[in-house]
Design a protein around this nucleic acid. Structure first.
Lengths: 133, 133
DNA sequence: CTAAATGCAAAGCATTTGCAAATAT
DNA sequence: ATATTTGCAAATGCTTTGCATTTAG
C-alpha cells in the first residue's frame, strides 16, 4: 500500500507536503517537530511551521500518526502501527521499536491496582550497541 | 525523616514555599505545574509562577523530584522514590503507583535490541475501579 | 465547484531570565 | 555576611488561530 492510499484511507487529502512527511516518517521512524521542519525545508522553502503543526495534529486525530513522549526529550511522532514499545539510547538518542510480550506485567498491574488496562506506554532508556563500545 | 531534613539532604534551602510544595506532593502523590500553583495560592497569595518553575527545576536537578510524562496529559511531578511505574485512569485521571517486577520485559528488550538498559518508564492507561462501575 | 490545506502574521500559552529585595544559613 | 530564593516584569519559545490564497477531489 503506497503513501497516497494510506493518506486517503485516513481521510487526509494528498498534498505534496503530506506525502513528504509520510516519506520522512517511513525513513526516520521517529521524529520531533523541529527536525521534521528542517527535513522539509529543502523541498518546500516556503513551508510554514504552522503547516507542520496543523498536519501533525490532523494526522494524530485521524490516528495516522502517534505521539511518543520520552522522558527529558521532545515528543516524537511515528506512523501508527500495531502496539509496540520503545528503547532509546541516552547517548545518541537512537530510538528503536521493540515488540514485547507484556502480559506478565499487565497481570501484575491489574491485580495490584484493580484498574482495567487498555493501553500501555513503555520507554526504556539505555545505551545502543554502538554507544556501548 | 521530616521535610526539613529531606530538603537539606538535597542541598535545598528550606523556605516556607518549598516546605509547602513538599507537603502537597506528599499528600497528592502527583501534580502538574498549574495545580501545584493553585494549591499554593491560598497560603502564599503573592507566590509567583516563576518561583514554582524555579523550584521544580531545582528540585528535579537535585533528584528530589521526578518528572512523569503521561501520554496526552501535562507532565506531573512526584517525590523521587525507588523505581516504580504508573497506572492512570483515562476517565478521572487518578494516578496510582505500582511496583512491578519487569525483569521479564527487560530481558526481552535487551535480547531484541542489544541495548543495555538502565531506566524504565511505564505508564498504563485504563479505568480505575470507581470509573469501571 | 466546494471543502480542505497552505502560508503568513498575529495571538495565546508555557517557561525562562534578569534583577532588586527578602530570606536562609 | 554571603549566597540563595523570591517575586515581579520582561523576554523567549512553542503552539494555535484567523484569514486570504491556493490546491485537491
Amino acid at each position: 500500500m503506497n503513501h497516497i492510499v494510506e493518506l486517503q484511507n485516513h481521510n487526509l487529502k494528498v498534498t505534496p507536503q503530506r506525502l513528504e512527511i509520510v516519506d520522512i516518517l517511513y525513513k526516520n521512524g521517529h521524529i520531533n517537530v523541529d527536525d521534521l521542519y528542517k527535513s522539509l525545508q529543502n523541498k518546500f522553502p516556503s513551508l510554514s511551521l504552522a503547516t507542520i503543526y496543523k498536519n501533525i495534529n490532523r494526522m494524530c486525530e485521524q490516528l495516522f500518526l502517534s505521539e511518543v513522549k520520552i522522558p527529558y526529550q521532545k515528543n516524537v511522532y511515528e506512523l501508527t502501527k500495531k502496539e509496540h514499545y520503545h528503547v532509546i539510547c541516552s547517548k545518541c538518542n537512537a530510538i528503536m521499536d521493540v515488540d514485547l510480550d507484556i502480559s506478565n506485567i499487565l497481570n501484575q498491574a491489574k491485580s495490584i491496582s484493580n484498574y482495567s488496562i487498555n493501553n500501555s506506554s513503555i520507554v526504556l532508556n539505555g545505551l545502543c550497541p554502538k554507544c556501548i563500545s
